[in-house]
């Protein structure tokens, strides 16, 4: 494992925005698993899901795919299996 090249500041700031909204989604998901009739929480869940998709689209255009198996588009050459991996940044 060679040393990965340092990532620009925008990589970290955009990733943190995604981590923040995805955390909201995960928390709401666990809450809704045991409170399926909370309409306000479902509304917040759907709004956050929209926000997360928009942030990920922006991130992927700049830094490549976030997800494998076709859940993200690839550039040429195939840019999924390229560093940095999460533990390298």
């Amino acid at each position: 494992m060679e040393k990965p090249k340092p990532m620009p500041e925008a990589y970290y700031s955009l990733l943190e925005k995604i981590q923040a909204v995805d955390f909201v989604l995960l928390e709401l998901n666990l809450y809704l698993d045991t409170h399926p009739n909370d309409a306000d929480a479902i509304e917040q869940y759907n709004e956050s899901s929209y926000e997360s998709r928009a942030l990920k689209k922006e991130f992927e255009e700049k830094f490549g795919p976030l997800m494998n198996y076709g859940a993200s588009y690839s550039d040429y050459p195939f840019d999924w299996a390229t560093p940095p991996w999460p533990w390298q940044v």
């Binding site: 970290y12 990733l15 943190e16 981590q19 494998n68 198996y69 999460p86």
Partner: peptide, 12 residues
């Protein structure tokens, strides 16, 4: 499962 190329929370 799908893999997502990010940690759940930053690790420094």
């Amino acid at each position: 499962w799908y893999y997502e190329k990010k940690l759940q929370y930053p690790v420094r």
